[in-house]
């Protein structure tokens, strides 16, 4: 059995789990390539117009995979922490896919509640059950998958740069270099190092988050908010670069929250969608870098 794994959305955080799980069940894994022009074209063709770029890109990856495998992983991740959510669009992802792309092989639709192990195992039993009836094999694959996931870290923490910024945004905005137009490399080329939220401790994040009137109920918002404000307030970085997709409802809240709490700290918001031009994008990064330099000198 060939299982297609789209390299999009939370692939960047949770791929080790899914990949290990399916390969331990004896499946052949077909991963879509990194996002590219072709996938972007599919993305804008086979997705509801109003969706944000990351969701469209996910559609593009699924379209790329649809004739190459026997089933496709469309993770409906409902939550990864108690009482928190990710985004409404994640909850309805399989339905969006199903109704936008035709002639699909079967896709996974079981909701994933990764906030506790038993609930996650329920997902594994359900979806694994479509592949093998051997419960023990599923359990073993599941345990190994969790172990692989625990070992995995992502994120960036550049050393040796005089200037440093925190790169904020959803995991896929930060990690998909096609989506973010290679922003890390561009910053590095301008002599600016990058740190991401994975390198801020949970305690520091929670310390900042607890100061809010209401704890944000979106997992990644909470992490991004806490880490960015922590790094800015403690002057661990010289500026904030936020990669956001047009139309992302969550960013519209998150960016305001950060703005309200960092005062006039340098803050660059890079908005992307499928029409974003690279030239203007570069100009803005360069202008920001000049500004950081001026601040340093003065």
């Amino acid at each position: 059995m060939k299982v297609g794994i789209p390299r999009a959305l939370l692939y960047y955080k949770y791929n080790p789990f899914f990949e290990t799980f399916y390969s331990e069940l004896g499946c052949e894994i077909i991963e879509s390539p990194e996002t590219n022009k072709v996938i972007l074209d599919y993305a804008s063709k086979y997705c509801v117009d109003e969706a944000c770029l990351p969701i469209k890109i996910f559609h593009g990856h699924v379209y790329y995979l649809k004739d190459k495998c026997d089933m496709i992983l469309v993770p409906r991740i409902m939550r990864v922490n108690d009482k928190e959510y990710i985004c409404p669009k994640f909850c309805g992802l399989p339905e969006m896919i199903e109704n936008s792309i035709y002639d699909l092989p079967p896709i996974t639709k079981t909701p994933i509640y990764a906030n506790n192990k038993e609930k996650l195992l329920r997902w594994a039993n359900r979806e694994g059950g479509n592949i093998t009836k051997n419960k023990i094999k599923i359990k073993r694959a599941f345990d190994n998958a969790l172990r692989e996931q625990e070992k995995y870290t992502c994120g960036v923490n550049d050393e040796g740069y005089k200037t440093k910024v925190v790169l904020a945004g959803h995991p896929y905005s930060v990690n998909d270099s096609f989506l973010n137009m290679n922003v890390i490399k561009k910053l590095n080329n301008l002599g600016i190092g990058v740190i991401t939220e994975e390198f801020v401790s949970k305690d520091d994040i929670n310390y900042e988050v607890d100061k809010l009137f209401k704890r944000p109920f979106w997992t990644f918002t909470k992490d991004t908010y806490g880490s960015t404000v922590y790094l800015a307030d403690n002057r661990k970085v010289d500026g904030i670069v936020y990669v956001s997709s047009f139309g992302c409802g969550i960013d519209s809240v998150l960016i305001e929250l950060i703005k309200n709490n960092v005062g006039d700290f340098p803050f660059l918001i890079l908005k992307v969608d499928e029409h974003t031009g690279e030239v203007g994008f570069n100009t803005r990064i360069e202008a920001f870098s000049d500004m950081l330099l001026r601040r340093k000198l003065s």
């Binding site: 509801v48 109003e50 985004c87 669009k89 309805g92 109704n99 936008s100 409802g249």
Partner: peptide, 16 residues
């Protein structure tokens, strides 16, 4: 409203 997240999901389902 423009950008409404849950309704974008339902919009993609309604044609079916």
């Amino acid at each position: 409203p423009l950008g409404c997240m849950p309704e974008i999901v339902s919009k993609s389902i309604l044609p079916t």
